Simulated assay, not measured.
Amino acid sequence: MKIRIIMGSKINNRCLKDMVNEYAKRLSSVMEIEIIDFKSTGNDVKEYEKFIKLSEGFYRVALAVEGKQLDSESFAKWFEGKQNKNIAFLIGGAKGLSEILKKKCNELFSLSKLTFAHEHALLLLSEQIYRAYTIIQGHPYHK
């Protein structure tokens, strides 16, 4: 399984990047997690094309406030059901993801009704992917 997290904004916070990399490292023996961040151009068409190109061949999941919200156990069940797929999670920059891009995704998820900075969304998603794996494995991390 390969997870690709694509973010339409650069990661500037080194401490946050280290935390995200720690979750990827913990999972590296069972799955590949790749983080791709790029500077937002402000051009919806160019960003759309970049997200599509980078997620081609992947099961696309956009993070969007209007997406479905899952608790950790439900996310783990969803994740377990996708273990034979490569998944791309798309995180928008300051303007979010365009409506046309969201329509090209297989699913929309919301981390919360609250709005998070893109970097914080990345950290929360990374932790939830790790948590989902520990739930599936019956590891005590979740408790």
Rank of each mutant, 00 (worst) to 15 (best):
S72P: 11
K68D: 10
I33L: 04
I35T: 04
Q83S: 12
K39F: 05
L27V: 09
G81R: 00
E47W: 03
E107S: 01
K103L: 10
K103T: 02
V45P: 09
E66S: 14
H118L: 02
L111V: 07
N106C: 08
E47D: 06
I52F: 05
E80D: 12
Y130D: 07
K104M: 02
L108I: 01
A94R: 13
I136S: 09
F109R: 01
A94C: 12
Q128V: 05
L123V: 01
Y48C: 02
Y59T: 10
F109K: 03
A62W: 01
G92H: 05
E66R: 13
L125P: 09
S55T: 11
A64M: 09
G93S: 02
K113Y: 15
F75S: 08
H118F: 06
S74P: 14
V61T: 06
A121M: 08
T134P: 06
Y48T: 01
V45Q: 07
M31S: 04
S126E: 00
A132Q: 09
T41L: 13
E80W: 11
A64R: 06
A132K: 09
K39I: 08
N106F: 05
A117I: 14
T41N: 05
V61N: 05
L54M: 13
L123F: 11
N86G: 05
V30C: 10
S72V: 02
A64G: 11
E80S: 13
K77I: 08
K102C: 15
L108R: 12
I33W: 02
T115F: 05
S98D: 01
S112R: 03
I35Y: 10
V61I: 14
L124Y: 11
I36K: 15
C105K: 00
C105V: 02
T41P: 06
E119Q: 12
L97N: 05
V30P: 13
I129D: 02
L70T: 03
G42D: 01
Y133D: 11
K46S: 15
G81T: 00
I136Q: 10
I129T: 03
R60T: 03
K77E: 14
N106S: 12
G96I: 02
L97F: 04
E34D: 11
G81E: 00
A88F: 02
G96R: 06
E47Y: 02
K50M: 15
L97M: 05
F75A: 03
A76Y: 03
L63R: 01
F51A: 03
V65P: 15
E80H: 12
S72Y: 10
H120T: 15
E34S: 08
K85Q: 12
E32A: 13
A62D: 07
A132G: 04
I35E: 00
S40H: 00
E99M: 07
